[in-house]
Simulated assay, not measured.
Amino acid sequence: MADINIPLSPIHTAPWGAIRTGLKEPARPVFEQVLRDALAGVELGAYDERMVVWLSGWDVPTVATVASLLYRVRALGYEEPEEGRG
Rank of each mutant, 00 (worst) to 15 (best):
E79Y: 06
E32D: 08
A64P: 03
V52Y: 10
R72H: 02
Q33R: 12
A2L: 03
A2C: 07
W16P: 05
D37A: 13
T62Y: 10
M51E: 05
A27R: 15
F31V: 04
Y47L: 13
I4N: 09
R74Q: 08
T62W: 00
E82H: 10
E49D: 11
R85K: 14
I11V: 14
E43P: 03
A75C: 05
G17Q: 14
G77C: 07
T13P: 00
A14Q: 15
R72W: 02
R74H: 14
F31N: 11
Y71T: 02
G17K: 15
P61Q: 07
L76S: 08
T62L: 07
V52H: 08
I11S: 02
S68W: 11
G57H: 13
L55A: 05
E83S: 09
E82F: 00
V66L: 04
D59S: 15
E43Y: 09
A18Y: 06
R85S: 14
I6D: 03
G86M: 05
S9K: 03
W58M: 14
E79V: 14
D3H: 10
P26Y: 13
Y71N: 01
Y47P: 00
L55E: 01
L55R: 01
V63W: 02
P29H: 12
G17P: 00
G22K: 14
V52L: 07
E83C: 03
L55K: 01
E83Y: 07
L8H: 12
D3W: 00
V66K: 00
I19V: 14
V42L: 11
G45K: 03
E43L: 12
A67M: 04
A64M: 07
I19C: 12
S68D: 02
E32L: 03
L70E: 03
I6R: 04
L76A: 07
E83W: 12
G77W: 10
L70G: 00
A67Y: 01
P29N: 05
L44Q: 13
A46E: 08
G41A: 06
V30R: 05
A18R: 11
R20D: 07
S56W: 02
E32R: 15
